[in-house]
Design a protein around this nucleic acid. Structure first.
Lengths: 183, 183
DNA sequence: AATTTCTGTTATGCTCCTTTAACAAGGAGA
DNA sequence: TCTCCTTGTTAAAGGAGCATAACAGAAATT
C-alpha cells in the first residue's frame, strides 16, 4: 500500500515544504492588517494570530531574513514582492479549497474551512491553478453544476462493493468509504 | 481576506491535528510491512521510513502509549483496531487525493503524489468520503468524465478577467489564477 | 518633566521530531 | 563457550515554534 511513497523517502517532503503553516499565516496577517488598518506592526500581528509578541517578533525576523517582509521608513511592516505573492497564493488556495469543499463536495462550512486552512499552504501551484480551472467550470456550466449537485445530494457515506462498481477502490479488498474515523 | 480565519484562532488547528504527518507514516509503515513481509519490527520501520532506529523506537513508544500499536507474543509490532483504521484512512486519503489530482485535474504524477502525501493526514473524514463519492461519479459517468477531461485538457494557467466570468474570483480585484509561484 | 503604558527584543524553557552515540540483551557461528 | 552482529532503548543535542518574563526605548498621560 503506497509502496512507492514509503520506499522513496518522499514522505518527509512534508517537513521540507518551502513554507510552514505558521509562516504563511504571518504573511497573510500582514496583508490583512494593511488592508484593514493601512499598516501592520508586530504587536498587531501577534494579536491577530493570538500568539505572544515574542513569538511574532521572532517569526518576523525569520521572514525578514528570507526577504519576504521589509519595513517602511516608519518601521511599519511591509510585504516584499515575493512575500505578497506568497500571501496571495495561500489566500487564493484557501478560497479555492474551501469553495470546493463547501460548494462542490457540500461539506459543512466549518469542516470545509478547517480542511482548507490545514491544506492551503501545501497545495502546489500547479494543483491549485488546475483546481481553480475545474471549479470555474463546475460552478459556471449549469448543466454540469446541476449534475454534480445532484450527485452530492445523494451522498451515501459508504457503498456496497457487491452491487456497485467503484473505479477507485479497484484492487483493494475493502471499499475505501468504509474506513471509519477513530480520531 | 480570510478575516474569519485569522480572527478566530482557528489557524492553529493545524498543529492540533489529532495525527501528525510522521505518526501517520509510522502506522502505514507497519501496515505495509505486515502486508509485505508478514511482520514488522522497529528496525524494519526505521529502514523503510529512512529514519534512525532511535527515532523509530521513540515514535513507536508514543504510538503504543496512544493505543494504536501493540506487540504480539513474539514482540513483533501490530496495529490495534484503532491504529489499523487510522492507517487505512490515511492510505485511502492518499489514493483518493492522488487520483483526483492526477486523473481529474490532470496534474503530473510526481506533483499529484507529492501534494497527496502532504495532505493525506489532514483531510477530514467527511471531506475524504465525499471526495471519494464525487470521484466515483466523475470517473464512472462517461458523459461527465469526458466533459471534465475536455475541460482540463484546455487548461490555461491564467484567465482574462475582462472577457471571462469567473465565479471564484468574485470580488477580488485580481484573477486568482494570476498568482505566480515564488517558492 | 515625571510617570505610566505600549512596543519590540531577548532569554529561558517547553514540546515534537529528528540525529548521533552509547549501551544492554539476544542470536548465530567459530 | 566465546565472540560478533543485530535489535531495541536511552541519553544528549539541535531546529522549529510556541510561552512567559525581563528589559530598553518610545509614546502618551498627567
Amino acid at each position: 500500500m503506497n509502496k512507492e511513497v514509503n520506499d522513496s523517502t518522499y514522505w518527509r517532503e512534508f517537513d521540507k515544504n518551502p513554507l510552514s503553516h505558521s509562516m504563511a499565516h504571518y504573511l497573510m496577517a500582514i496583508d490583512a492588517l494593511r488592508n484593514e488598518l493601512g499598516y501592520a506592526r508586530s504587536t498587531d500581528i501577534a494579536e491577530m494570530l493570538e500568539v505572544s509578541r515574542g513569538a511574532a517578533s521572532m517569526a518576523l525576523a525569520q521572514l525578514k531574513k528570507r526577504g519576504w517582509v521589509t519595513e517602511d521608513p516608519n518601521r511599519f511592516l511591509l510585504l516584499s514582492e515575493d512575500g505578497a505573492r506568497i500571501a496571495s497564493m495561500v489566500e487564493h488556495n484557501f478560497i479555492i479549497l474551501s469553495k470546493f469543499f463547501e460548494q462542490v463536495l457540500m461539506v459543512d462550512t466549518e469542516t470545509a474551512m478547517g480542511d482548507a486552512c490545514k491544506m492551503e499552504h501545501l497545495v502546489s501551484n500547479e494543483t491549485g491553478k488546475r483546481l481553480l480551472w475545474l471549479m470555474r467550470y463546475l460552478l459556471s456550466d449549469e448543466d454540469l453544476a446541476v449534475k454534480v449537485r445532484e450527485r452530492m445530494s445523494t451522498y451515501k457515506p459508504r457503498c456496497d462493493p457487491l452491487t456497485e462498481q467503484c473505479p477507485i477502490c479497484g484492487g483493494t479488498t475493502e471499499c475505501l468509504a468504509t474506513a471509519e474515523a477513530v480520531l
